[in-house]
Design a protein around this nucleic acid. Structure first.
Lengths: 339, 339
DNA sequence: CTGAAAGCGCTAACAT
DNA sequence: ATGTTAGCGCTTTCAG
């Protein structure tokens, strides 16, 4: 089919070995020879087959990427950030959707990942069971997680407890006392720590202000429509909250839409704050704790590449990514009295 | 590192060839032997290396997927639909983000795709230049497009002109005369036909009703915030339209949010209709022409697999995917007189 | 600095 | 039905 290194060698009048050396820039090749080889390769449009090369080098030049949903704002941005870095190092990404409790997910861990196709694995917002963690480890290749802790694994994510506290405290500082928390689902028995930590931060802040008795928790899928539904329920109750701390901007945006539908003025009658810095946050005037998933993705990719390259493996651990509190109209004013 | 077919053969007491045959189910192997081989493989957790196999079979068991943005509703759904089918056939997907006019995009076509890693390519909502089309063809592997036509290529998509006409006609039937079109960007000189066709359908419907003089066109990125901005401009003008036909639900949703912000009642003072059946369409009460990208993705994957399998290559051509007009609150009422 | 030879893991003739 | 041999495209000893 396409040109092989044999063709290049023949055209350049050298042996396969020399052609290989010239093309990879590794061994010692005389400048003239090297030039001829490179020219020959360009002429016939030769591109090295990494599959064949991997057989002898052990390097596949590919990364396996795991995510429960690649079309969500967070995962999409992480993947995008990782892709830029990887492509520039001649790596590409094979994507697997690890939706919980599916047959496909099972096969991804037992069949696709062990096919020896990858030099590393990037887990994005994935909540692996202990069994899955063991399988991942059994692969014997570097693993980096983004979007939450993973036991014994290098991970990039937020200090979720702290930022949840910050966000909740901001609401408290505005004078709110009836603050509800719109959180993510806590999948038992194995779950990514993110949702739990954000809820804990919320509770801590409440307790610090002597408001623990007012805690009001709602948990749902991390999507705008789910947030809309959950918030509608929350806001339809007679003793509705005057503020909502949402665990993600998607949930917060759903809450804003719900409030409008119910004719509840923001921020007059309801303050809302989220976490993320979603692409729609500004449009909705949403106050939020911004994070930068594209950056997290590229950091993770660099880490992975480093580990593959044999750099002293960065001690597995949790790297806290930067965030920034951004205040907008959704928390623009103190609530109107106690109504 | 991991177990090879040699290990399996040794453990089962057969030759590599027999082990290979037993595992692949191709050649003739006695039931007893086959069983022993399979058991041995299971015992040591053997998984065939497709990279090594591809060297001799020519099959890589992988598909290259091209999309300008994998995190948008449409692409996300297409990819999801394709993934399910592919995984069930032992295929996985390597994803490349082909954002127009980037260096990465160039390298994807010139370096990554020709690495002989794929048995086929799936192009999702991709607008390839003639040069890129040529490179794709030069790969010598099956190619299927989803989300628009591609010259000389098997493609799955909508009858964009027809559904745009349908949507516009629905607005006209409601009594509207000042109908604006919120469309996608027309990238010159090469573009996917989608946006142009939808605009043409809109113009055709207008003309059929003698309304061609009232055409009002606005083109922008296919995102909610872009739709919000464009609609805000459209609706702030003194002679604002009484109806909007948006080329996508994302744009339509942006328009709905803009209208609320401007205190323009829907559907009292403004009717809105979109195209897609976006996951947020119902929440926003958006009338739309639903399409089913997950289905399109799985159809495309089946087609690809068929072409790879050597089925009589389905004549390259355009396959029209099903749609359904879904009416909701956003076009619930006729406009209030002519105001 | 360069070439010849071996071999990565696997399958496809070709024998038997 | 099974084993032997060759070889896919590539890199890496090992000689020279």
């Amino acid at each position: 089919m396409s040109a092989t290194i044999r063709d290049v060698a023949r055209l350049a009048g050298v042996s396969k070995a020399t052609a290989s050396r010239a093309l990879s820039g590794s061994g010692a090749v005389s400048p003239g020879t090297s030039e001829r080889v490179v020219a020959a390769a360009a002429e016939i449009g030769y591109v090295r087959s990494p599959n064949a090369a991997s057989l002898v080098t052990g390097r596949t030049m590919s990364i396996g990427v795991l995510t429960p949903h690649h079309d969500r704002w967070f995962s999409g941005a992480v993947i995008e950030g990782a892709e830029r870095v990887l492509l520039s190092h001649d790596y590409d990404m094979t994507l697997y959707t690890t939706r919980p409790d599916t047959a496909d997910r099972e096969r991804i861990f037992t069949f696709f990942l062990p096919r020896s196709r990858f030099d590393g694995v990037l887990a994005v917002a994935t909540e692996p069971s202990p069994d899955e963690v063991a399988r991942l480890a059994g692969l014997g290749i570097p693993l980096v997680a983004v979007g939450g802790e993973m036991p014994g694994v290098a991970a990039y994510g937020l200090d979720d407890r702290a930022i949840a506290e910050t966000a909740t405290r901001h609401l408290i500082g505005l004078g709110h006392t009836r603050i509800a928390h719109l959180g993510g689902l806590l999948r038992e028995p194995y779950e990514f720590s993110v949702h739990r930590h954000r809820r804990e931060g919320y509770l801590t802040a409440l307790a610090a202000a002597g408001l623990q008795g007012n805690a009001r928790l709602s948990a749902t899928e991390m999507t705008i429509p789910s947030g809309f539904q959950a918030a509608t329920a929350l806001l339809s109750a007679p003793d509705r909250p005057s503020a909502i701390f949402a665990a993600s901007d998607e949930l917060a945006i759903g809450a804003i839409i719900a409030a409008r539908r119910l004719d509840i003025a923001i921020p007059g009658q309801l303050s809302v704050i989220g976490i993320d810095g979603h692409s729609q946050a500004e449009m909705f005037g949403l106050s939020t704790v911004e994070q930068y998933p594209r950056e997290q993705g590229s950091d993770a990719a660099h880490a992975l590449l480093g580990m593959i390259g044999g750099d002293r493996a960065p001690a597995p651990g949790y790297r806290v990514a930067r965030t920034r509190l951004v205040l907008r109209a959704s928390t623009g004013f103190a609530p109107l009295g106690d109504a």
